[in-house]
Design a binder for these strands. Structure first.
Length: 454
RNA sequence: GUGGUUGUAGCUCAGUUGGUUAGAGCACUGGAUUGUGGUUCCAGGGGUCGUGGGUUCAAGUCCCAUCUACCACCCCA
């Protein structure tokens, strides 16, 4: 072996088998998006860093891949910044572009930039890879595909309901059992207000979000570390320990935080969504989760997260409503709501549960064996007739030993092998071998075409 | 970014308290079978033991560093 070449940490190659399975997922997602009236767009892999920085919080800025400037990238660099390890300034001086971190922020940029071409409410989907400089782990990659659907320019909660239906449709088609968790950013705000700690909103919600993982006591411990006093923490108790079904939980929430503007609005919104959702015939379980706190950085209303029931892999879909994402790009008061499907994690779920259909890899129907120069030239005409009839056919390019050609057909899972040697050329009656049963039959081109067309 | 585990043939792995020429299965190539794959039998090729340094008469094996993959945290799809 010449040398060991590898791919960067957290990235992957995809074999033809894997691509067939991936395309199975993508087409399930894409066809559903289309069915609901969404149109596709694409945006570049790289954006200006000014577009990306500051949109995902401090953590997000760290996880952005930055692209070194072309040419003399040192020309804007101040050597003092290097000495002082002023990483922010050094980065800004040598890199002005970065790889996109998600599809939502580039979409917001797109909307603002193409405002006058867009009919609102704008329903778009986007299926493209994103990059994060995170440390790879199970179900976590540095390059992965997101499949986004968003509606922008409509405040109606019917959009939320539609997204829930889309989620249910897609996972139903893929045979994955899921729980759709719902919350509302305003409920979180209400909680923070009712315990008189609105400025601690982020600390409170990210701590509460971990209750399933580490238990109530650890959450309280983390909150103490973040500087909350015992009284405040005790006030959280009733919120943390909500029980019962969705309706009773919502009613409890209303009592607890209904006195705040945000809280009452948030509960009302969620109640409305639940009302509409419960009368639908959904397969997925929809669950109100008052501690769910994803995407806190730009979400303002509904928060959605989807987890697989039978595999522990983190969320496979997530999203929410953002009232002012385009505001950062100079277009205020445009509300949007959207979700993102993690195709790579869905792949892992399907793989782990063995849920991929057998025949996702569409193999070649028939391989024509190459017996030599004359026979190959003759076979070319037969090949053409087969392909014209819609049969997936290929002619082995080299006249190597039949054993090798048969083995190739076997490995590629080709259904039939067509043998056209000297005898067959002379008689016009060809030999067709069924690779599954091993049976051989003889027939004219018309008879053979008939076999494939049935 | 913090902490832990790991690395031996293309792949999955064995390799004893440090000791002679580092093994197996699968895969690959050739043959048994000159027009027949998937089964069987025979033969063959393939390794700077992740990389760099150190300890030792002697290192795949012990020590340090570094890289990779995996796991947990942070965060997230």
């Amino acid at each position: 072996m010449a040398q060991k070449y590898t791919i960067p940490k957290g990235t992957r190659d995809f074999s033809p088998e894997e691509m067939a399975r991936r395309n199975y997922i993508f087409s399930a997602i894409q066809s559903t998006f289309k069915k609901y009236g969404y149109f596709p767009i694409e945006t570049p892999a790289m954006e200006n860093l000014s577009t990306l920085m500051g949109k995902y919080g401090e953590e997000g800025d760290r996880l952005l891949f930055k692209i070194l400037n072309s040419g003399d990238f040192l020309k804007n660099l101040d050597s003092k910044d290097i000495e002082n390890k002023n990483l922010g300034k050094v980065t800004a001086a040598i890199a002005e572009k970065g790889l996109r971190y998600d599809l939502t922020v580039p979409f917001a940029r797109y909307v603002v930039q193409h405002l006058n071409e867009i009919a609102f409410p704008f329903k778009r989907y986007q299926i493209q890879p994103v990059w994060r400089a995170d440390r790879p782990q199970k179900g976590r990659y540095r390059e992965f595909y997101q499949c986004d659907v968003d509606v922008i320019g409509s405040r109606s909660l019917l959009n939320e309901v539609e997204l829930i239906r889309i989620i249910d449709d897609i996972f139903k088609e893929l045979s994955i059992n899921v729980v759709i968790k719902l919350n509302n950013r305003k409920i979180l705000t209400g909680i923070a207000e009712i315990i008189n700690a609105p400025e601690k909103l982020t600390d409170i919600t990210t701590a509460m979000d971990k209750i399933d993982k580490m238990g109530v006591e650890k959450v309280y411990e983390e909150l103490r570390q973040k500087g909350l006093d015992e009284d405040t923490i005790n006030m959280l108790e009733p919120v943390m320990n909500l029980s019962g079904n969705n309706t009773s939980r919502l009613n409890c929430l209303k009592e607890l935080i209904g006195s705040t503007d945000a809280g009452s609005q948030g509960v009302q919104e969620l109640q409305y969504i639940m009302e509409l959702t419960t009368q639908l015939n959904l397969k997925a379980e929809v669950k109100v989760d008052q501690v769910l706190a994803r995407g806190l950085n730009y979400y303002t209303g509904t928060i959605i997260e989807v987890v697989a029931q039978d595999v522990q892999i983190g969320s496979i879909c997530g999203g929410g409503r953002y009232d002012n994402l385009t505001g950062i790009f100079g277009l205020p008061d445009v509300s949007g709501v959207g979700i993102s499907f993690g195709a790579d994690r869905i792949y892992d779920v399907l793989h782990e549960l063995n849920l991929f259909p057998e025949e996702v890899l569409s193999a070649t129907d028939v391989l024509l064996v190459n017996f030599g120069e004359k026979e190959a030239a003759y076979s070319l005409g037969i090949l053409e007739q087969l392909q014209l009839a819609g049969v997936k056919a290929e002619l082995y390019p080299d006249s190597v030993k039949m054993k090798k050609q048969m083995k190739y057909a076997h490995q590629k899972k080709v259904g039939y092998v067509l043998l056209i040697g000297e005898d067959e050329m002379n008689t016009g009656i060809y030999t067709l071998k069924n690779m599954k049963t091993g049976e051989q039959s003889k027939g004219t081109i018309v008879e053979i075409l008939a076999i494939f067309n049935t």
